[in-house]
Design a protein around this nucleic acid. Structure first.
Length: 215
DNA sequence: CACCAGGCAAGTA
DNA sequence: TACTTGCATGGT
C-alpha cells in the first residue's frame, strides 16, 4: 500500500474513533505560545495548572508577562516543571516579540509560515516541534507538527524508518498529505491522543489500539 | 516504589 | 556527527 493511503487510513480510523479534537486548548494565540513552551516534555495536566495560575493573576498577555522578573515568572509556572528553564525560554520569546515586532502579535503572525518558523527556532529554547506547534496552532499555517508519538506510531507501522529524524518525518508527511491546516491540526492531536492511551514508551497496548491490525 | 509526560541545549568523544 | 545528561513537577 502507498504511504499516502496508509496515512489516510490511519487518519480515518483515529478520526472515527476519537472524533474532533479541537486543538489548541487556549483562548488566544499568546496563550498557545506560552502553552507550547510549557508543555515541552511535560504532561498537559501540569501545564493547565501553570496556565491557571497565570490566568488568575491576569498575566496571559504579552505586555503583562513581559514585565515580570524571571523569578516571579518561574514562581507562577512552577507546576509545569523545569520552571527556571522555561521562565527563561518564555522571556527569550518575549524579547523577540517586543524588540523585533514591537509587541504586535498581529504583525508578527502575518508573516509567511517559513519566516515565522525561522524566527521562532532562532529563539533559545524553541526547537522544531515548539516552533511548528506555534505556526500551526497559533498562526494557523499548514506545517505538520512531529513529536515523539508521531515517530513511535509511524515507525511501528512501517511508514517511516525507526532512525528517522524530525525533518525527514515531516517531509514524508507533507509529501503524502494534502496541505491543509485543519487536517494537520486534527492529525497531530489524534496521534497524541492515541499515543497517550496505547503507545507509551514502555507497556504499549497495541491489541486494544484503534490502529490495531493495520497493514 | 518506578516511570514518564504534547523537548531542548550543552557537553562529550 | 551521534550519543548522553540536566532540567522538575505531579499522574498513574
Amino acid at each position: 500500500m502507498q504511504t499516502s493511503e496508509k496515512l489516510k487510513e490511519i487518519y480515518q480510523r483515529l478520526s472515527n474513533h476519537y472524533g474532533p479534537q479541537n486543538w489548541w486548548p487556549a483562548e488566544s494565540r499568546f496563550e498557545v505560545m506560552v502553552g507550547a513552551i510549557l508543555t515541552q516534555n511535560t504532561n498537559w495536566q501540569n501545564v493547565e495548572k501553570a496556565l491557571a495560575n497565570l490566568q488568575s493573576a491576569e498575566l496571559l498577555s504579552l505586555g503583562s508577562m513581559s514585565e515580570l522578573t524571571v523569578e516571579k515568572l518561574a514562581e507562577h509556572i512552577r507546576p509545569a516543571g523545569y520552571y527556571t528553564l522555561k521562565a527563561n525560554r518564555l522571556q527569550n520569546l518575549f524579547h523577540l516579540l517586543n524588540e523585533q515586532w514591537d509587541g504586535d502579535l498581529d504583525y508578527f503572525f502575518q508573516q509567511p509560515a517559513m519566516a515565522l518558523r525561522e524566527q521562532l527556532i532562532s529563539v533559545k529554547g524553541i526547537g522544531p516541534e515548539t516552533a511548528d506547534a506555534i505556526v500551526l496552532y497559533a498562526a494557523e499555517k499548514p506545517v505538520f507538527v512531529v513529536d515523539n508519538y508521531t515517530h513511535r506510531i509511524l515507525s511501528r507501522h512501517d511508514i517511516i524508518p525507526r532512525e528517522c529524524g524530525y525533518y525527514e518525518i515531516q517531509e514524508i508527511l507533507t509529501d503524502n498529505l494534502d496541505e491543509d491546516v485543519h487536517l494537520f491540526n486534527e492529525f497531530h492531536a489524534l496521534l497524541v491522543q492515541v499515543g497517550k492511551q496505547f503507545c507509551k514508551k514502555t507497556n504499549p497496548k497495541c491489541d486494544e489500539c484503534p490502529l490495531q491490525g493495520l497493514v
